[in-house]
Design a protein around this nucleic acid. Structure first.
Lengths: 214, 214
DNA sequence: TAACAAAGCATTTTTGAGATTTTTGCGCTT
DNA sequence: AAGCGCAAAAATCTCAAAAATGCTTTGTTA
């Protein structure tokens, strides 16, 4: 699409929980942080609002959606449906290059996750983890021939992650077995076992949901 | 969401094929037609671009996506997956009010479609048909408890319809058996037959795809 | 003391103009 | 005649300021 730096940066902030649930976005402050004008900031708000990641309250500015357990559960279902459907086609079209890229993405993810696990407190690694987690799942689906399926998976993933961090803010979103679950997905994918991969993805998302919703 | 009149009007134009595939949108002309400023027009472009219904080419304005057969096929698949998944849950939660609303929506749709069938040339009822077709499918899913599933179905439906009219413009998108297919969906839904309803929806979308793609 | 109203303040939205970029048209060269 | 290059024109994007709206506070009255 486009690689608008402030646009990407703000989206990463939203997906990393830098802003609380229902918190209103202040154009002036964010504009100064990104060194752009308030109008350019507003354009980014408009676009993100069109993507469903921000809510525009008429004459009252923009705010992030509030963390709703039901919404999180619905997005989890949706993500499972779409990601499982796409990974099936991705595995059907797998090749050596894909295996290499997926292994590399998992290597990075595992490294960050082990650091996150050891650190105890999330700290400032969360944005990094948000990115590498996305890159892993994106790489997983990269050989799925349907661009639309991949595109909507991305939208749903972003929406899903925002909802997760809106529900639990900084703590607890990183489940205890996440590392093992990602490894299970990798193993099944490399082995070309579609059913095992679907199960691994479903469990991965379901466990996070259960963990977040207590 | 919001009931911005110019916003809705432009979206309906896009979904009705008032603008050709790849055609660039001229802010000044559209702004005058809707009696708003060029900046307000641009805000609507931004939002629609965020929804994926418009494409922004840097420093070259906005344009509608071009009609790509592969994209249409992908969106057809996606629509079938999501709409079938949602209709299953909708039927599980059906009640008398839903049956009444669905019958009413189908009645309107059948009336418009018979006029469209008789008229031969689409003419100016295409926007009307676009709306009642959407209202029928929306009503069909209205008792599905997952708001996210319904929301993403709407996005995909809008994207799908834009792609259809971008591919075939004004002629041919209205298949010969569309009336019978909608009636089959209605009958199966009222009867509570999930499997028959899924089949009817799948055939409905598949036949349109085959008809459009020759 | 509580409730209502009006004025002041802060924020958002819109407007209009300036600056940068792309496109178009014309003349020149090969 | 075709292709290249430069200049003019059109369009887009960005920016800063004005207008409109919502929120807060203060003052008055019951």
């Amino acid at each position: 699409m486009r690689e608008d730096s402030p646009y990407q940066a703000l989206k990463l902030m939203l997906m990393s929980g830098a802003l609380g649930a229902g918190e209103k976005l202040q154009p002036a402050i964010l504009a100064e942080r990104f060194s752009i004008s308030a109008s350019a900031m507003r354009e980014i708000f408009l676009r993100l609002s069109g993507e469903g990641l921000l809510i525009q309250k008429e004459q009252r500015g923009f705010c992030v959606g509030l963390g709703d357990p039901a919404t999180l559960a619905e997005l989890s279902d949706l993500r499972i449906i779409v990601e499982c459907g796409a990974v099936e086609k991705a595995i059907e079209n797998k090749d050596l290059d894909w295996e290499a890229r997926l292994t590399a993405a998992h290597h990075k993810l595992a490294h960050v996750e082990s650091r996150l696990h050891a650190a105890g407190t999330p700290g400032d690694i969360v944005p990094l983890w948000t990115r590498v987690d996305w890159e892993f799942h994106e790489t997983l689906l990269s050989t799925c021939p349907s661009r639309m399926l991949r595109a909507y998976h991305r939208k749903i993933y972003e929406h899903y992650r925002m909802q997760v961090v809106a529900t639990v803010r900084h703590a607890g979103f990183f489940g205890p077995d996440t590392i093992a679950q990602h490894e299970a997905i990798l193993t099944a994918a490399i082995a070309g076992d579609v059913e095992a991969c679907r199960r691994a993805i479903g469990q991965h998302v379901d466990i996070v949901r259960a963990h977040v919703l207590d």
